[in-house]
């Protein structure tokens, strides 16, 4: 019993740290974006205020049960993904529930929240929600293909799907990182990562103005607050996943912050530099070069 309680407490600790980190990160990133555009931009703690404000709305509406629990699915997906990942390498405290499932599980589990949220958005009856979901799902399928090939290449390289072992194999030197030992797989996965973060050029899912911000169009108040929490946790979890797979993991929080920040910056840079793709364009794009790189990664690890 004691172990379970400590596990839960440790998990809450991780959750607390990562949530704050995620919120600050999103604020900082927007700040950086603004600075690039020669603006001051938001205050880095603005996401906190927005979050609090959304919880303080006095009225709210609901379109039905599925609409109501859609965000719950979403946040469960985000928190779950985080908690099923080993966050800090070698730390039993921040290992959380990674004993329950391996990389395959993690890759599948990230869709748990997405699909639940999509259903909730669907029940709102707003056509734009459905349109956003349809775009998001379509883009995701294409994006996942290079990612899968990269993951498989990794698994071949390390002979395991266990994230701990993948991280362990990258320790020692910066040159042991997958990024350097298996560059093709890393490139393929980092290209997929762009769409995973949902930033430009792959942000047509949310396309504000054209379809008011996609699936969450109807979400507001506390429901939106839950989604915002997820928007802090979920990307952070994904960053941690990529850090673990490609960049040698992290042995302490400082390392984690630095690495994930720069991983995030990759998508931010690309996002600022490139305009938006239409869905059919992004799908075709992923079936082009990223896919070839993924296949090449597989062939390389298999035959060389």
């Amino acid at each position: 019993m004691g172990t379970i309680v400590t596990k839960i407490l440790y998990a809450l600790l991780t959750l607390f740290i990562v949530t704050n980190y995620g919120l600050i990160l999103s604020g900082v990133v927007r700040k950086i974006g603004a600075r690039v555009g020669r603006r001051h931009g938001i205050r880095f703690y603005q996401p906190y205020i927005d979050l609090i404000k959304n919880y303080t709305f006095r009225t709210r509406i609901t379109h039905g049960i599925m609409y109501y629990i859609g965000p719950v699915f979403r946040l469960t997906g985000g928190i779950g993904l985080l908690l099923f990942l080993p966050v800090i390498y070698g730390s039993p405290v921040f290992d959380n529930f990674s004993f329950a499932g391996d990389l395959t599980f993690v890759l599948y589990f990230q869709f748990f929240g997405v699909l639940g949220m999509a259903l909730g958005a669907g029940e709102s009856g707003h056509p734009y929600s459905a349109l956003g979901v349809s775009r998001g799902l379509a883009q995701t399928t294409a994006m996942e293909l290079p990612l899968t090939l990269g993951v498989l290449a990794l698994a071949v390289q390390y002979h395991t799907l266990n994230i701990h072992e993948i991280v362990a194999a990258q320790q020692g030197s910066i040159l042991h990182w997958t990024l350097f030992t298996n560059p093709l797989a890393a490139i393929a996965m980092m290209l997929s990562f762009l769409a995973m973060m949902g930033r430009s050029p792959f942000d047509v899912v949310l396309a504000p103005q054209e379809i008011p911000i996609g699936p969450p169009t109807e979400y507001h108040s506390a429901l939106l607050g839950v989604l915002q929490l997820n928007r802090a946790i979920f990307p952070a979890a994904k960053l941690i996943l990529f850090m673990n797979l490609l960049f040698g993991g992290a042995t302490n929080w400082g390392e984690l912050v630095i690495k994930t920040f720069f991983i995030y910056m990759w998508s931010v840079f690309v996002g600022i530099a490139y305009p938006r793709f239409r869905v059919d364009q992004s799908v075709r794009w992923y079936f082009g070069i990223p896919l070839l790189i993924g296949v090449a990664a597989i062939l390389v690890v298999k035959y060389f």
């Binding site: 603004a34 603006r39 001051h40 103005q209 008011p212 911000i213 109807e218 979400y219």
Partner: peptide, 18 residues
């Protein structure tokens, strides 16, 4: 950049709900 209302916590939302 000239007026940059963001710095005051002002942001635009595309939907009245939010």
């Amino acid at each position: 950049p000239r007026f940059d209302a963001y710095r005051f916590g002002i942001q635009w939302r595309p939907t009245p709900r939010q």
